Simulated assay, not measured.
Amino acid sequence: MLVDSHCHLDFPDFDGERDDLIARAHEAGVDLMVTICTRIRKFDQVLAVAEQYDNVYCSVGTHPHQAGEERGIPASEIIELAKHPKVVAIGEAGLDYFYDKAPRDAQEEGLRIHIAAARETGLPLVIHSRDADDDMAAILEDEMGKGFFPALLHCFSSGRDLALKAVDLGLYVSFSGILTFKRSEDIRAIAKELPADRLLVETDAPYLAPQPRRGKRNEPAYTAMTAAVLAETRGVSPEEIAAQTTDNFFRLFSKVPKHLKVSKPADTSAGAA
């Protein structure tokens, strides 16, 4: 069994074929998915997808790209939304200095608010970090000093120092299709070095399809391709990576039932998105 710990199934890229998408994931051995919220004001759309499928859960939060437009949403609102049984994580929130689509102070403010929500709820914070290693490390260290919160660096593409700092602070690290790219030698070296009990896998679908699907639309079934490269990188079997990353997922995403019985997708032809 594999888990796609980060995808965006509410995105219009998947309209009209979510049943088939879930079925293909099952066929590839990907039996659980977490669809990630990027706008709190559109959380209802994310939740609707999670409620439609037994094996899909979701998060609630604001992506750093939208930190400016959703500025001022308090941690209390995130905490209240997170009470829904299908909400198993906070975020994604973080810092993105590559695109800088939102003011950096708004990104930091949003990140700290989401950290407060993660600390209060005990749900893992899904962290987006791009070209912001130093500031991210400083914020994480500062906030951990105020009290522990569970978290992971998703779609890891940062430097070794941030990865080691995150692990030292108790965080997990998730690898996407980037791990499979030919020029990702540095990322694979980091993936090889990190403790086995801190690793997760994801797609970030519809983005970042792994080799040999690079450049095409990504989907949860392709988690298996990234997991295979992670196994090769660490010199273990795909079965071992599947077992380890799934164990890690349930340890971090503790709200997901550990012995969840995954059923086939229901017939939703009458009202499927």
Rank of each mutant, 00 (worst) to 15 (best):
S184H: 09
S184E: 06
E185Q: 15
E185S: 14
D186F: 09
A189E: 15
A189L: 07
K192T: 08
E193L: 14
E193A: 13
L194S: 09
P195G: 09
P195Y: 07
P195H: 06
A196S: 13
A196G: 12
D197Q: 00
D197T: 05
D197A: 03
L199N: 04
L199G: 00
T203W: 06
T203D: 00
D204R: 07
A205K: 06
A205G: 13
P206W: 09
P206T: 08
P206R: 08
P206E: 04
Y207V: 11
Y207K: 10
L208P: 07
L208C: 09
L208W: 00
L208Y: 06
A209P: 05
A209S: 11
P210T: 12
P210C: 13
P210Y: 12
P210I: 13
R214Q: 10
R214T: 07
G215R: 10
K216D: 05
K216P: 00
K216H: 09
R217K: 13
N218K: 09
E219G: 02
E219P: 01
P220H: 01
Y222T: 05
Y222L: 15
Y222Q: 10
Y222A: 08
T223L: 05
T223C: 05
A224R: 13
A224N: 04
M225Y: 14
A227H: 03
L230F: 01
A231I: 11
A231W: 11
T233A: 04
T233E: 07
T233K: 08
T233M: 02
R234M: 08
R234S: 04
G235V: 01
G235C: 10
V236C: 12
V236E: 13
V236I: 15
S237E: 12
S237R: 08
S237I: 01
E239W: 07
E239H: 11
E239D: 15
E240Y: 05
I241R: 06
A242N: 03
A242W: 08
A242G: 07
A243Y: 04
A243Q: 14
T245F: 01
T246I: 06
D247C: 11
D247Q: 15
N248F: 04
N248M: 00
F250Q: 08
R251F: 03
R251N: 02
F253Q: 02
S254F: 06
S254E: 09
K255S: 07
K255H: 08
V256W: 03
P257W: 09
K258G: 05
H259S: 12
K261H: 02
K261F: 07
V262I: 14
K264T: 13
K264R: 15
K264D: 14
K264A: 15
P265E: 11
D267S: 00
T268H: 13
T268I: 12
A270V: 14
A270K: 15
G271M: 09
G271K: 12
G271W: 14
G271I: 03
G271D: 14
G271T: 11
A272K: 14
A272L: 14
